[in-house]
Design a protein around this nucleic acid. Sequence first.
DNA 1: CGGCAATTTTACAGTCGTTGCAAGTTTTCG
DNA 2: CGAAAACTTGCAACGACTGTAAAATTGCCG
Lengths: 225, 225
Amino acid sequence: MAESAGRPPGLRESKKARTRRAISDVATRLFAEHGFERVTVAQIAAAADVSVKTVFNYFPTKEDLFFDRADELIEGLVRTIRERPQGSTVADALHALLADNRVPFPGTGWKSLRDPEHYEAYRTFVATEHASPALRARRLVLAERWARELSEAIAEELGLRRGDRRADILAAMVVAVMGLRERVLSAAMLERAGARAVERRVRATMDEAFERLRRAFADIDRPAK
Amino acid sequence: MAESAGRPPGLRESKKARTRRAISDVATRLFAEHGFERVTVAQIAAAADVSVKTVFNYFPTKEDLFFDRADELIEGLVRTIRERPQGSTVADALHALLADNRVPFPGTGWKSLRDPEHYEAYRTFVATEHASPALRARRLVLAERWARELSEAIAEELGLRRGDRRADILAAMVVAVMGLRERVLSAAMLERAGARAVERRVRATMDEAFERLRRAFADIDRPAK
DNA sequence: CGGCAATTTTACAGTCGTTGCAAGTTTTCG
DNA sequence: CGAAAACTTGCAACGACTGTAAAATTGCCG
């Protein structure tokens, strides 16, 4: 695998990066405009001025075009756990992150829904996803992968051995709660609730969920430091 | 929607049922023999002596051929909750069901893994599913549907209004635990652990998980009657 | 700079799931 | 029995995806 800072960028590398970006951007725009199902890979390729084969060269499946960089989300979660403030349990840290009115944006991190531009962008994302069974299915697969990574991070952070049942259970429940958050968020945004209303509903759900998680895992979820 | 016992069977009905069964059986056999991905719908149609179009007439997608009647599982769960014995909480009832060494079989209910025949059949099922990303994805979609139905049943059973946050949270966590059970079960069976060993691992995981669920939901999960 | 090797991109042909359509076939019912 | 309704089928077509081998591009070395 290429190390993160191997050689000086190199023409080839940078060109590849640019091509990949171009394809992803074009695809994102087209999906937002016409919906996932009604855009063909051939159209994307044409709009990005590459061949269909090249598209599949960079993205294994059409769905990957939509969820490009979605895996960054899990990195954010893991960092949240690892770098939680002193005295804060894992549940505390995740609670703080997920009860907040922010949502993950590819590349640029978590953004507040109070910003109308971000609200609109995320609403489009959610609506596109919601309208496509294939995308909804894909999201579930991603969530499963997240559960595994989360489980490892949690185990390590709580001083349990890898694959400890308790870490697996906690991770699975956290991911379930994330799924719930997503559902609440989507539902609220799809009916065009105002940013404050969305925020309120999300927070209420997360408060409830994490309170219960705290109760369930009080014995092993220890504060940092 | 057709009521469960509409007219006397009728030639047409029974013929349809037979055709459907034939297709499903043939598909199941072929998948077990060669793996999901390596069997084409055309082959299934040929082996079942119908046209490809007829196959899609009965089953919306190829995956549905594999998971035919999997939705019966959720009915079993819901019944488990509704008909739980006196003094038993929802968590108790689900715990008893899921810590047991039995697995759901389409049509015939839950069977013990101690029976070598059932063990082998279920192992084949699990192995086939495991080998196919498409099937794994599909299972996740089914699980999501189960979460919704479970949530309704739980809400009703605990005297909460439909869509009560707490019921949603409990349901989501229960489904997460079911997913975990499946993972433990699969892993154990794929490495050909003996029935007792599989049973032990499943039970240990379920004991741990439900103990935590009980703690988390002690305030609302009331015993029956 | 020139030219060869490695890497990317592309066209082309093909597989497979899935759908729409119009023409059979079978079952039901009056 | 005969027409309507319900099923089945063959055919053509679409779109995601793959393999292959040829063409274009880029990196590198003398």
